[in-house]
């Protein structure tokens, strides 16, 4: 749920990066953090295990600039991808304005991607949301790996509705900002359409 503060002339939106364990959600946020000017970003918080797996979430506040005199801020969150952290994923999805599904392109992770996508549908439905009416984009990550599945197959399995999709290699940063911009754009368009 976006928050419009007329008093401080700010608007805040929440974007959640979802996807199976180790697909590269945290790596996306780290890249954004590393490549953003200090005055445009807040502290990145990572609640993680000793093995650097996300335990609860990563959080990165970004300020994009002004739109019609309002400071536009995006709060980026990642969920923990490991299957047994489902209770935490549900909490993080609350109040979401836009979703990035990060898929792991490695052929042996296809099943894990589909499971996570199902889980996303289910958890959104519990909150009365639906991917078809929510700003939503897909990122095919780890395209750099030799065992990456063919794009056509991933698209067929994961993007039957043809939402915006991006090939990425978060470890080098390829496709990371394109993904973010695309979902941010959809969120702002939604905000506009909702106030018409």
């Amino acid at each position: 749920m976006s928050f419009i503060n007329y008093s401080s002339r700010e608007i805040n939106c929440k974007i959640v990066y979802y996807g199976p364990g180790l697909c590269g959600k945290t790596t996306n946020l780290q890249h954004i953090y590393n490549r953003t000017n200090p005055e445009l970003k807040g502290k990145m918080i990572s609640l993680e295990t000793e093995a650097e797996r996300t335990l609860f979430f990563d959080f990165l506040p970004l300020a994009l600039g002004e739109i019609r005199g309002f400071k536009t801020r995006f709060h980026l969150y990642t969920v923990p991808g490991q299957v047994f952290y489902d209770a935490s994923r549900k909490l993080i999805l609350k109040g979401v304005d836009g979703v990035v599904f990060v898929a792991d392109s490695q052929a042996e992770r296809l099943e894990a991607n589909l499971e996570s996508l199902d889980n996303l549908h289910l958890n959104l439905a519990e909150q009365g949301h639906d991917l078809s009416s929510l700003p939503y984009v897909i990122q095919y990550n780890k395209r750099d790996l030799p065992n990456a599945a063919p794009m056509a197959e991933m698209q067929r399995l994961m993007n039957p509705n043809g939402v915006p999709e991006f090939e990425a290699s978060a470890a080098t940063g390829l496709g990371v900002f394109e993904t973010l911009k695309s979902v941010a754009r959809l969120v702002l368009q939604e905000l506009r359409d909702a106030s018409r």
Partner: peptide, 23 residues
Amino acid sequence: PASPTNSPFSEITDEDIDNLFST
């Protein structure tokens, strides 16, 4: 309730959105 007359966002153009990302 937010309406075109009192919401600054009803008037957002695609260009406004592009400008956010130009920097």
